[in-house]
Design a binder for these strands. Structure first.
Length: 428
DNA sequence: TTTTGAGTTGTTCGA
DNA sequence: GTCGAACAACTCAAA
């Protein structure tokens, strides 16, 4: 039995190839887990359901879908299908590890093993370590070692036989929730197509153009990587020379780095990685919640912030550079907990990945791995002038920005307030 | 053990 | 308009 989770592809799939080794019949399974569905926004769910349908197609319609808690559903399916083993791609996140350990315990009672093969990363969390065996806490050092260790090539296809036992009860893949936006084309084939398009037209200029939100200069691979529709080692294998290629590899290394940090510090999904920052004074009262609501809706009065927040609501995606700007605004201009912003992002981002998301937010808040100078505060007007000089990005998402709208806070005032709070926290 | 160099992404001010 | 300094100090990583 092959239990799919965030690896919704058939090609270059170590766990699937292990399950089907020597011509074994593979029963492909996906569990729709309420714990993951419940906090997800509509675009995110729609993309997942569509990708499940695409996966089912490439499995010849054999995918067995069930709703429920995997700790109950997986052992039950194992018995119903008389499977001798359950194979998964390893999950290194806090929830995934707890879930898999519970499933493993239940399976053990029937003498069946939960077998993990492969990970969603070029290098699995826990494998890149310092000379003394401890994990890295600084990206650049991690990156050097990550390059030195290297990663394997994509796996060649093998013959696989998928099998759904006759009469086995299956739940239908749910209908998409109502959304009024275009999502990326779902599925494994679309992932490869998008990647081919980016390699042909984008990768060479990636390092220069990626910071301009008005032009489609980023790879748009994040949703595909999030759901495992393609594996990063395939992308790395296709890279050549040049600064754009090197920059893209570095971004994949960031993805591995943050997964590694979360693996070693599972609590950092919810808490400050640097606990000395716990003392920082944040606003959490009713007025703060009202400010947060304005931020989520894209009504702050700062055009670049509002454009990003509206793009997120409308499409389930936001340009990377703009993510930093809106995050800085929530944390440093509104003085709100980064967790509030992180939760909103995870709800709405089709590509929302716990490790990258939470640690990206901790970077913005200065509570994470970065030796972040606390005085690094993004100026929304300055960022807009530098990165969207013609206002193309802003106009697309905030048509009323031609009229002057009142800003909810004064950046100059709030910047000073943020610096004051940080200084107090660090003890000066 | 000690030392040394370095750390994603910024902004403002004054010369 | 451009450019360098200041904004601080701490921790990490490797020699």
């Amino acid at each position: 039995m092959m239990w799919f989770r965030r690896d919704l592809r058939v090609g270059d799939h170590p766990a699937l190839q292990y399950a089907g080794r020597g011509g074994r019949d593979v029963v492909p399974v996906f569990v729709i887990d309420p714990a993951l569905v419940q906090p997800s926004g509509a675009p995110r769910l729609a993309f997942m359901y569509r990708s499940l349908r695409a996966l089912d197609d490439s499995l010849g319609g054999a995918l067995v879908v069930r709703h429920g808690d995997p700790a109950t559903v997986i052992p039950q399916l194992m018995r119903e299908t008389n499977s001798s083993e359950v194979v998964v791609s390893r999950d290194y996140g806090p929830y995934g590890r707890r879930r898999d350990s519970a499933v493993s315990d239940r399976l053990a009672k029937f003498d069946v093993e939960l077998i993990g093969r492969g990970s969603p990363y070029a290098l699995a969390p826990g494998t890149v370590r310092k000379g003394d065996g401890t994990p890295y806490a600084i990206f650049t050092a991690f990156y050097k070692m990550w390059q030195r260790v290297g990663h394997g090539p994509p796996l060649a296809d093998i013959a696989l036989k998928f099998h759904c036992p006759q009469g086995l009860p299956r739940d239908p893949i749910p209908d998409d929730p109502a959304i009024d936006c275009e999502l990326p084309e779902p599925g494994e084939r679309a992932a490869h197509q998008r990647w081919a398009d980016f390699v042909a037209d984008g990768l060479d200029h990636y390092d220069i153009r990626r910071d301009t939100p008005a032009i489609p200069a980023t790879s748009l691979m994040s949703p595909y990587l999030r759901w495992g529709l393609v594996h990063p080692r395939q992308l790395l294998a296709d890279l050549g020379d040049g600064p754009g290629h090197a920059m893209f590899a570095k971004e994949l290394a960031w993805r591995d780095f943050y997964a590694d940090v979360l693996f070693h510090h599972p609590a950092s999904a919810r808490e400050n990685l640097q606990h000395k920052m716990d003392a920082m004074h944040l606003d959490t009262d009713a007025a703060a919640r009202a400010r947060f609501a304005k931020w989520t809706q894209g009504n702050t009065g700062y055009p670049i912030v509002d454009a990003g927040m509206r793009q997120l609501l409308a499409t389930g995606w936001m340009h990377n550079r703009v993510r930093m700007i809106v995050a800085s605004f929530l944390v440093k201009d509104l003085h709100l907990p980064w967790q509030w912003g992180a939760r909103h992002f995870m709800q709405h981002l089709v590509d929302g990945d716990l490790a990258s998301n939470q640690h990206g937010w901790q970077w913005a808040a200065g509570t994470g791995t970065d030796a972040a100078p606390y005085f690094r505060v993004f100026n929304p007007a300055g960022q807009a002038a530098r990165l969207d000089p013609d206002g193309d990005y802003i106009r697309r998402w905030v048509p009323e920005s031609a009229r002057s709208t009142a800003a909810m806070v004064d950046h100059v005032v709030e910047r000073a307030e943020a610096l004051r709070r940080y200084q107090t926290t660090i003890g000066r």
